[in-house]
Design a protein around this nucleic acid. Structure first.
Lengths: 196, 196
DNA sequence: AACGATACGGAACGTCGTTCCGCTTTGCAA
DNA sequence: TTGCAAAGCGGAACGACGTTCCGTATCGTT
């Protein structure tokens, strides 16, 4: 653990110097291509942007999902860590939940195609889906439980369903100016409020 | 207009007998493959099921979207026609809206992959998207306006956004037993209710 | 300097949607 | 009935894609 590797991507240590350099170029190139062409950009485009062959991508990132995870790890991490912080700093658990969902939505909506890929039936994206669930579901559960315990929301919705619903609402939001995912998510959260 | 052609698919008239037969086999085969393998099933599978070559599919249905539209036209039509009927028979416009949305959701959820394809960024599905919008948006608008005029719901949500949101919530619902699209849609509709 | 381990590039493969064209079938007309 | 254009057909062929594989180049150690 002394190498700082976070555990899901390939290690940045114990490699040849050129290999490490390539891995970082690849991350930068992928991030850049994801911004301009979306997360579903062809692997060859990413390779070209990084100035490497496609084989190099697959050696460093065994599956596309691993590359995507590596690119967004920091932001997902930040989102996960924001959960408990919001719970501590907000007036009510419901307010914390709302703000955290906003964070999540902002993240998804600004990553072209990420929400869609999260729901792709392509099995090679399963590990991406799992990563999001593993990292964010506990956070969401904590917020949801706190709000439910406070009696602010109906207690019968699972965090998994909420996250999937929110993720789904974000699909395609980046392409269509007349579709405002944030607004619909807000409506969904409003529907969550306890009628009491 | 006397041939009964509804306008979007290829005409069933003025064709050679074998061509008409093939077209119908194709529709049956596609419907069957869609049920078992989903709407995104490979074209070659549909051709094989119908016992024809792939070229025959493209002659009858210039794009995949046309084939999908032809397969589901009747059900979309029924859904569209149910709108005004519900409005006339329901106690309140809001109730009619809720029931109509349920119809729409049931339709989407039972057609494997249809909701996803509706949101695909693949441009060849644009005409499918357009067909749904053209046929169903006016109906939804009518229901939404009626409910808004009755003061039952907040008046600031466009029918387009509602339909896209509902469609999005249905994506992937058929694969995951722990995700209940109907429940989330119901929550969304609940969020629509006027606080007043 | 030399050599084994490591990593690289990109050709090659399988799958997909879609197009194209030589051949077959149809149905009308002689 | 037969002949023959037009209509329709099958499936090979093409280009884009994700992924694998392997001959070659590079690294870093001796």
């Amino acid at each position: 653990m002394s190498d700082g590797n976070k555990g899901a991507g390939p290690s940045a240590r114990s490699k040849r110097a050129d290999a490490r350099r390539n891995q970082e170029n690849l991350l930068d190139a992928a991030a850049s291509v994801f911004v301009t062409s979306g997360v579903e950009a062809p692997v060859r485009d990413i390779a070209a942007e990084a100035g490497v062959g496609v084989g190099t991508i697959y050696r460093h990132f065994p599956t596309r999902a691993d590359l995507i995870i590596a690119v967004y790890r920091h932001q997902v991490e930040a989102c996960a860590e924001a959960g408990p912080a919001l719970l501590a700093s907000s007036a009510t658990p419901h307010a914390a939940l709302g703000q955290w969902i906003n964070l999540f939505v902002d993240f998804l909506v600004t990553k072209h195609g990420l929400a869609a890929v999260l729901r792709s039936d392509n099995t090679s994206f399963d590990t991406l889906h799992s990563y999001f669930i593993d990292r964010l579901l506990p956070v969401c559960t904590q917020l949801l439980d706190a709000a439910a315990d406070a009696g602010e929301i109906r207690p019968d919705l699972k965090a998994y369903e909420l996250m999937r619903g929110v993720g789904n609402l974000c699909i395609g939001a980046e392409h269509d100016p007349s579709y405002d995912a944030r607004r619909l998510v807000a409506l969904l959260i409003a529907g969550l409020r306890q009628p009491r």
